[in-house]
Every structure is written in structure tokens, then in C-alpha cells.
Simulated scan of single mutants.
Amino acid sequence: MSSRDLLLALVVIVVWGLNFVVIMTGLQHMPPLLMGAMRFALVVFPAILFVKRPQVPWRWLLAYGLTISLGQFAFLFSAMAVGMPAGLASLVLQSQAFFTLLFAAMFIGERVRVANLLGLVVAAAGLSMIGMQVDRIMTLAGFLLTICAASMWALGNVITRRIGKVNLVGLVVWGNLVPALPFLALSWWLEGPAAIKGALSGFGLESMLVLVYLAFGATLLGYSIWGRLLSRYPASQVAPFSLLVPVVGLTSASLLLGDRLGQWQMIGAVLVMLGLLINVCGGWALDRLRSRAAAA
């Protein structure tokens, strides 16, 4: 990977890792579902006027928008609003890698390798250890909602694979045409007109900066660069960078929000990271070992 692309990959990791601190900041001023509606409205407009619609049937755009956008962020924003710390959210959300593995095997027949299963077991042990520490620095509802967010992200990943090669920026922009109105309807129904009115009447510069970061930084910039890297390099070379997202998330939450993990949660976090590492790199390592054994 060239030094320029390496720098771009690190930019994405930092942007996505800081994303969780930004979300927590936004939740101080806006209810979660309203924040989702405003985020995706800003993603779509005015970008949709300049970005060509990808050659994808509308049903797949709908499925993409309802899972990776509406489902993932409705659950994630709600999880953080009801007691999921930003740093832990960045870590637990990475369980999407294993949900993607399971859903891809179930729905599109992808093969599951031994390394994938080993990584799944190790990460599941870590998540269980984190989950058993509820009511100390997180709520059970927050933990479970984050798991739901990870599963929706995974379904979106499988839908993206089913769609195949497509302009990722176009998919992000046009796919996000879907969630804004459902987010607003859910906000009206679950959060109520009074909460919406209060958030809009108190809307200030900090709220605007949060939405700009979420829409243009985490979504348009992040996915555009990530898609560029995936188009230029093998997924096995790009995917390991995603392991750094929870590292940035946990570090930034500790420095900027004062989040602290207990001893058992720290051990659980290490196990989750180890499981992710085995899932991403384990197959490559096993192949190298087999090659060396065959050569010997």
C-alpha cells in the first residue's frame, strides 16, 4: 500500500473512531431518532443532486437503507442514549464481523473457515464477559441494543455483497434516501412532538457541527475513502485497519469523556479484539503455515 493510501486509511480509522464521542455529544442536545433523521437528510441533500444513482434495483437500495442505515443507527443511537458508553459501543459494534460471517453463510452460501469459527468463539467469550458487567458502567438495554445495531450492519454488509460491484459513494447517497423519513416518523411516535420541538428550538452551533461530522465525515468521507481502498487493494490488506476503530474509540472516549473500563471489561475487550484479529488474519496465517509445510 502506498504511503498516501496508508495515510488515507488512518484518516478513516480516526474519523470512525471519534465518531462515537461525537454521537454522545450530539445526544446531549438531540433525541437519538431525531438525530438520525437529521444526519441522513444531510447525507442525501444536496449530494443526491450531484451523485449519479447506481445501477441497482430499487428493492436493493431499500434493503440497504433499512439495514445498514436505519436499523444500525436507530439501535446504536438509542443504545448510547440509554446507557451504552461511547468506547464500549465502538468495540461491541465490531461484532458485526461475526454476524456478517453467519448471515453470509446462511443467505448467500459463503464458506466459513476454521479461523472464522475460532475468532467467533474468542470474541463471543469477550462479549459475554463484557455483558456480564452490566449495571456497572453500562445498562443491559444499551448492550443489547448495540448488539442489534451490529446485526443490522451485518445484514447491510450481506446486502452490499449481494449487490456486487457498484459505485460505493452512489450507493451510500442513494441508499440513505431511505432512512430519513422513517427516522422522523419513529422520532414523532416514540420521542414525541415536544422533544422534537425542544431540540429544534435549542439547535445551536454544537448540534450543527455534530451533524456535519456524522454526515460528511463519518459517512460520505469515510465510506468514499474506504471504498477507494477496497477497489485498489485486496480486502485482506484493507480489512485489518478496521481493528483500530475500537482502539481509537476507547482511547478518545477515555480522554474526552472520562469513560473507564473495569478489569473484567478490559479483559473482555482484549478478547473481542483478539477474536477480530483471528477472524481477519487467521485464514491468511493458516494458508502460510500450510504452504511452508508443503514446501518442506
Rank of each mutant, 00 (worst) to 15 (best):
V12W: 02
I13N: 13
W16Q: 10
F20Y: 14
V22E: 10
G26A: 05
H29Y: 13
P32C: 04
L33R: 09
L34C: 10
M35D: 12
F45H: 00
P46F: 07
P54I: 09
Q55F: 06
W60L: 15
G65N: 03
L66W: 01
I68D: 05
S69E: 03
L70A: 01
Q72F: 04
F75R: 10
L76I: 03
A79R: 08
V82W: 03
L88V: 05
A89N: 07
S90C: 06
Q96I: 08
F98T: 06
F107Q: 06
I108H: 01
G109D: 01
R113P: 00
V114D: 05
G119V: 08
V121P: 00
A124D: 00
G131L: 03
M132S: 14
Q133W: 06
L140E: 10
G142M: 08
G142A: 08
L144V: 13
C148I: 04
C148F: 13
C148E: 01
G156H: 01
I159M: 03
T160V: 07
R162F: 09
G164A: 08
G164Y: 09
G164N: 09
V166H: 08
V169D: 01
L171K: 07
G175W: 06
L177E: 02
P179G: 05
P179T: 04
A180F: 12
L184H: 09
L190E: 07
E191F: 10
G192F: 06
P193R: 13
A194I: 00
I196K: 06
K197I: 11
L205N: 04
L209T: 05
I225K: 12
I225Y: 09
R228S: 15
L230R: 11
L230C: 12
L230P: 14
S231H: 13
S231R: 14
R232M: 13
Y233N: 12
S236K: 15
P246W: 07
V248G: 03
G249D: 02
G249P: 06
L250G: 03
T251M: 14
S252P: 02
L255V: 13
L257D: 07
D259P: 02
R260K: 14
L261Y: 06
G262F: 01
G262H: 05
G268E: 00
M273H: 12
N279R: 12
G283D: 15
L286T: 08
L289A: 15
A293D: 08
A296L: 11
